[in-house]
Amino acid sequence: MKISTSELLDELKNRTEQHLRFAEMLSVKPEDDLNFRISEDSWSALECLEHLNRYGNFYIPEIKRNINSAGKSSRTYFKPGILGNYFAKSMLPKEKLNTMKTLKQMNPMYSHLDKTVVHTFIKQQEKLLELLEEAQHVDLEKTKTGISISKLIKLRLGDTFRFVIYHNARHMAQIQKILNL
C-alpha cells in the first residue's frame, strides 16, 4: 500500500478536527453524564479521554522531537511499515469494538476525573493538528518515533500519526456508545 503523503495528512487532519469538535461538544455536557459507566467494569467517557490523554502525553512530545530533528523531504508518497501498519489498522473502530488490554499506567479506571480531562484532550488535538501541519515538510517514512510500550521498537512517523489518531477514533466511538449519541 502506497498513499499520497498529502492525502494521508489530510485524512488525519480531518479525523483530528472531528475529534476536536466532538470533544468541544462533550465539554458542555454535565460531569455526571461524562462519569457514567455502562457497567462496573467499563470505562466512562472521561476515563476514555484520560486514557487518550496519557497516550498523548507520550506521543505528542515524541512526535514533536522527531519532527524538529528531521530533515526536509520532497517525498510525495508514504509506504507504511509492516508493524506500524498492523498497529494502526488494529486501532480502527469496527462495527463491534473488540476490547483490548491496556497497560496499567494507561488505565484510568476508577480515577476521580472532572472536565479538565476534556480540556486537556482538546489542547492535545490542537497540538496534533499543528504537528500534522509541520509534518508536511518531513519524510514520514525515514523519520522514526519510539513507541510507548518499548524503547527498542521504532515506527515510521506516518504510522505513528495513524496509530495515535486511529486510537483516538476508536475511543471516540466508545464514548458515543457510552453516552448513547
Rank of each mutant, 00 (worst) to 15 (best):
S90R: 06
M91P: 00
L92I: 12
L92Q: 13
K94I: 10
K94M: 12
E95L: 09
K96A: 15
K96P: 07
K96E: 12
K96G: 12
L97A: 12
N98A: 13
N98M: 12
N98D: 13
T102A: 15
T102Y: 07
L103I: 09
K104Y: 07
K104Q: 09
Q105C: 14
M106Q: 07
M106T: 08
P108Y: 03
P108L: 01
P108R: 00
Y110H: 14
H112A: 15
L113K: 00
L113N: 02
T116D: 14
V117N: 05
V117P: 03
V117T: 08
V118Y: 01
H119P: 09
T120Q: 15
T120V: 12
T120R: 15
F121S: 01
F121M: 06
I122D: 05
I122C: 05
I122Y: 02
Q124C: 08
Q124F: 06
Q125V: 09
E126W: 08
L128N: 06
L129V: 03
L129R: 03
L129H: 04
L129C: 00
E130Y: 07
L131A: 04
L131F: 02
L131M: 05
E134V: 12
A135K: 04
H137Y: 12
V138W: 01
V138H: 00
V138I: 12
D139K: 01
D139H: 05
D139I: 02
L140N: 00
L140G: 01
E141Q: 09
K142D: 07
K142H: 12
K142T: 12
T143S: 05
T143C: 04
K144I: 08
K144D: 05
T145K: 05
T145H: 06
G146T: 12
I147T: 09
I147H: 11
S148K: 08
I149C: 13
I153W: 03
I153M: 04
K154G: 07
K154Q: 11
K154S: 08
R156N: 07
L157Q: 06
L157C: 02
L157E: 01
D159Q: 04
D159R: 03
T160M: 06
F161L: 03
F161S: 00
R162M: 04
F163N: 00
H167M: 05
N168L: 10
A169D: 08
R170H: 05
H171M: 01
H171Y: 00
M172A: 11
A173I: 10
A173Q: 13
A173H: 15
Q174G: 04
Q174P: 03
I175V: 07
I178W: 00
N180M: 11
N180T: 11
N180R: 10
L181Q: 11
